[in-house]
């Protein structure tokens, strides 16, 4: 399948007083229509920065972007703001963690959805309003004809997040990027939003990028997972393989850190140490100073050579950036049922 989103060797850098922050360092991945990719990884690993680059949201005056981002064949890197305006909302949309900050408090929900729609369609206010009501209905807001005239503060947290999704989808974008859309919500509302995104994706056949810290959510909604560490992908492939039998010690470390909802609670096992500074990323594998398994690799290779992100098993779909081979990398973990 030809990918709808294709990122090749993306670098995003922020020149600052202290030096250059290398937030994304050579990221490549592709996503076809109809699939959901979950991006997980340490705080500050570049999940949001790379996704904002896809939407062309970085200020070109303070950001250095190289590499290529193709969405539906169009190159986003270097695209003019004028073309980006036409692209955003119509081809691709993004929803953020905090709907409060993305909805304007002084305009009704309906006005905000209508504005998104009319930015890309030459239609009357009346037609746009009918479309807004249709979208609110589509995302499961009861009484949409009345709700359309209400203000954000009259909506509950879950309803605001749904209104955001309605706004993001009003132009039938082929690519939806959701950056932690359910982190602030309780699990029952979260389940509703996840169902909603899955339904809409089925109906519209869009490609979805879903950023989250919750590996349970990833397990339930994603087709593929991309694990990021220090500005790059360390593991990428189908969700069952990547979370079920991780090949990279960082992915394993994430699994080890989760408190289970059943079983006997015991001490948690966080990954030792702290994430590296993006001003001075370690040589070799960026994770090696914290890696419990580096001694299994000969000749201190981990500290010298950055492993490539390539297929390291018979399965060509799963990619890993780790020098460990063969029997050295079975990482059992208490959070999952035992392997047979």
């Amino acid at each position: 399948m030809t990918p709808y989103l294709e990122i090749t060797d993306l670098q995003v850098e922020f020149p600052t007083q202290d030096g250059t922050v290398r937030a994304v360092q050579g990221l490549s991945y592709a996503l076809p229509l109809g699939r959901t990719l979950a991006i997980v990884g340490e705080s500050g690993s570049g999940k949001s920065v790379s996704s904002m680059a896809v939407m062309g949201l970085h200020d070109p005056r303070s950001t250095r972007i190289t590499g290529s981002i193709k969405v539906g064949g169009k190159e986003i890197v270097g695209m003019s703001e004028r073309n980006l305006m036409a692209f955003r909302g119509a081809d691709a949309s993004m929803i953020f963690q905090d709907p409060q900050s993305s909805l304007h408090p002084y305009f009704t929900i309906g006005d905000q959805i209508m504005e998104s729609y009319r930015a890309h369609h030459r239609v009357s206010r009346k037609t746009a309003k009918a479309r807004a009501i249709e979208m609110l209905d589509r995302v499961g807001i009861p009484n949409p004809g009345r709700r359309v005239d209400q203000y954000p503060h009259e909506f509950s947290g879950g309803m605001r997040q749904r209104a955001m999704i309605a706004m993001a989808l009003v132009n039938d974008p082929k690519l939806l990027i959701a950056d932690e859309p359910t982190t602030a919500l309780d699990v029952t509302v979260q389940a509703q939003i996840l169902d909603l995104i899955a339904d809409l994706q089925r109906d519209f056949g869009s490609a979805v990028v879903f950023i989250t810290h919750d590996l349970g959510v990833v397990a339930e909604i994603a087709d593929d997972v991309l694990v990021m560490y220090a500005g790059n992908a360390v593991e990428h492939g189908p969700v069952k393989q990547i979370l079920g039998t991780p090949l990279h010690p960082y992915t394993w470390g994430l699994l080890e850190s989760i408190p289970a909802v059943s079983g006997t609670p015991g001490p948690l096992h966080p990954i030792p140490g702290s994430p590296p500074s993006l001003l001075a990323v370690p040589n070799g594998c960026a994770f090696h100073p914290r890696c419990e398994f580096r001694d299994r690799v000969a000749d201190g290779l981990c500290g010298e050579k950055l492993p490539d992100l390539v297929a390291r098993t018979a399965d060509p779909d799963r990619l890993s950036r780790c020098h460990l081979t063969g029997p050295d990398r079975i990482f059992e973990t208490d959070i999952l049922p035992r392997l047979p």
């Binding site: 309780d186 699990v187 029952t188 979260q190 389940a191 996840l194 919750d214 590996l215 349970g216 959510v217 990833v218 397990a219 339930e220 969700v239 069952k240 979370l243 079920g244 699994l255 989760i258 909802v261 959070i335 999952l336 049922p337 392997l339």
Partner: peptide, 15 residues
């Protein structure tokens, strides 16, 4: 309802 809505990571190993 709340407890039933907790996403379960075990599905990746076939639970």
């Amino acid at each position: 309802a709340l407890l039933s809505a907790v996403p379960d990571i075990g599905v990746v190993r076939g639970v």
